[in-house]
């Protein structure tokens, strides 16, 4: 199936943009785009049919030499990111399918829309997952049953707060700060009633829900793949989240243990 340069740019930039948005590593994004372009005859080997991809977690630039000889560029700025590894997996399968079957433009866009609308876990299930993570990590770090219960409740509250805070589009630093400050405040106040034995395990457990797992893993894998710019970007993000969490928890503990 033949595809115009414009359509190819639309397909590659949509797939690449979505991959970044859903939390794929940068080398996967660049590799998928290169493979898709190669499937339609742009394989970098002959002059005039070159494709260049540059991606960082914030931006994606694709340049393809059109049939008339003029290079065409599509740029995509990625501001919103939400982790959804199931969709990354499906997009990965789609690009593999494109490479072998070479379907036409309409078919591909249909598949992309299907992937965009794949079901996610419902909000109550996600809230429950936060509670379970917080409770089990409180146990993991040496807490008892009471600590686990308190951490579970705080986990639920953290999820609700982060849902509310997300509406004002905060910086990663601020989001970590608010959530951990709320968690530490509640943990310290509950420990004052004597229900829990100290607040350490409760705070550690509930803060583990905020650990930027996908950011840390992508950071390591980007560095290994040689995408140092992307690696630095994600490393900075992870460090900012960690500093935000530490600041929030530290200020809440200092404030509420002093009286």
């Amino acid at each position: 199936m033949i595809m115009t340069t414009n359509e190819l740019l639309t397909v590659t930039s949509t797939i690449g943009g979505l991959l970044i948005e859903y939390g794929a590593e940068i080398y996967r994004v660049e590799d998928s785009i290169n493979r898709i372009a190669a499937a339609y005859g742009y394989n970098n080997s002959d002059e005039g049919r070159k494709v260049e991809v540059f991606a960082v977690p914030a931006c994606l630039i694709i340049t393809i030499d059109s049939l008339s000889g003029n290079p065409m560029t599509r740029q995509r700025r990625i501001t919103r990111r939400e982790t959804n590894l199931d969709r990354v997996d499906k997009l990965n399968n789609l690009s593999r399918f494109i490479c072998t079957e070479k379907p036409d433009f309409k078919t591909i866009m249909g598949f992309i829309n299907q992937i965009k609308n794949r079901r996610v876990y419902s909000f109550p299930v996600q809230v429950l997952s936060y509670a379970v993570v917080a409770a089990t990590f409180a146990l993991f770090f040496g807490g008892g049953l009471n600590e686990a219960i308190v951490a579970g409740v705080i986990g639920v509250i953290i999820r609700l707060i982060s849902e509310g805070v997300a509406k004002v589009k905060p910086s990663v630093f601020f989001e970590g700060l608010i959530c951990s400050m709320a968690a530490a405040t509640m943990a310290v106040l509950v420990s004052k009633t004597g229900f829990t034995d100290g607040f350490d395990t409760v705070i550690i457990g509930s803060l583990m829900t905020l650990v930027p797992g996908i950011t840390l893993t992508n950071c390591m894998r980007d560095f290994i793949a040689g995408d140092f710019l992307a690696g630095l970007y994600t490393l900075t993000e992870a460090l900012l989240i960690a500093v935000g969490m530490a600041t929030g928890a530290a200020s809440a503990i200092t404030l509420f243990t002093s009286f």
């Binding site: 939390g23 379970v132 993570v133």
Partner: peptide, 12 residues
Amino acid sequence: IASIAFGVQFNI
């Protein structure tokens, strides 16, 4: 248990 719960957060 924690791994399973984390998987839900990442929509796996």
